[in-house]
């Protein structure tokens, strides 16, 4: 295939144009893709003049025309142009990559990685320490609860004591009052009794006088 294209294009070049060098060392191979292959509308006359298969012919015409329009210098460039052109660029790129690797390691990977690792460990430490304080908080809460309990107990005890004291006082006062009232009552009762006895005595004497008088009045004749 390549040979056919080559031969046909060579034939075309030599026959159709005089501007190109007489012996172009143009080799069509995989390593050379010099220009885009664009399909072109062709006139029927050109089809007739060339007696090779149409696809081959169009390719060859494009190749030939591209070569033909190129000035000698450009033709040389195209000859040199190649995709798979290995040279000193390869080891240079290797060296550049290695340089980039060491430089990036120095200024990016190592420092930032170390920084991130340190931060991670610091955060983990802080987290674990926070877990520890949670037990501390529990202890403190327990303590607070105990203190509150003690204070409540104290207060209730004081309250009870006060209640008892006041109650005793009140009872004492009540008892005193009762005693006083009873004593007064007794006194009053005693005086009442006295008065009763006195009145009874006076009544007795009056009764004797009255009965004397009654007897005198009833029995005057008998005298």
């Amino acid at each position: 295939m390549a040979n056919m294209i080559m031969s046909s294009s060579k034939a075309l070049i030599t026959s159709s144009s005089s501007t190109i060098p007489s012996s172009p060392r143009f080799k069509l191979s995989l390593t050379q893709i010099p220009f885009p292959k664009l399909p072109l509308p062709r006139s029927p006359k050109s089809l007739e003049t060339l007696s090779i298969p149409s696809t081959l012919k169009s390719i060859s015409v494009i190749l030939a025309s591209s070569l033909a329009i190129a000035p000698p210098s450009l033709a040389e460039e195209i000859e040199k142009a190649s995709l798979f052109d290995f040279n000193l660029t390869l080891p240079t790129m290797m060296a550049e990559f290695l340089f980039l690797m060491f430089a990036l390691d120095k200024i990016y990977f190592s420092p930032l990685g170390k920084f991130m690792d340190e931060r991670d460990s610091a955060i983990k430490e802080k987290l674990s320490s926070v877990k520890d304080t949670s037990t501390e908080v529990k202890q403190l809460e327990d303590q607070a609860a105990a203190i509150m309990k003690a204070a409540r107990a104290e207060i209730s005890a004081a309250l009870n004591k006060m209640k008892k004291e006041t109650q005793q006082e009140v009872e004492q006062k009540i008892a005193e009052g009762r005693k006083k009232v009873e004593a007064e009552l007794l006194e009053a009762l005693a005086s009442l009794e006295n008065q009763k006895e006195e009145t009874m005595k006076s009544l007795d004497s009056q009764i004797a006088a009255l009965s004397d008088e009654i007897v005198k009045k009833v029995l005057p004749a008998s005298n």
Partner: peptide, 26 residues
């Protein structure tokens, strides 16, 4: 011959417009 040169001119125009360079090195 005329037709060929004409088509060559169109090709040259297309080639200039597209400006595709493959395998060209500095």
């Amino acid at each position: 011959m005329n037709v060929l040169s004409c088509s060559i001119n169109t090709l040259k125009g297309l080639y200039d417009i597209s400006g595709v360079e493959v395998g060209q090195h500095f």
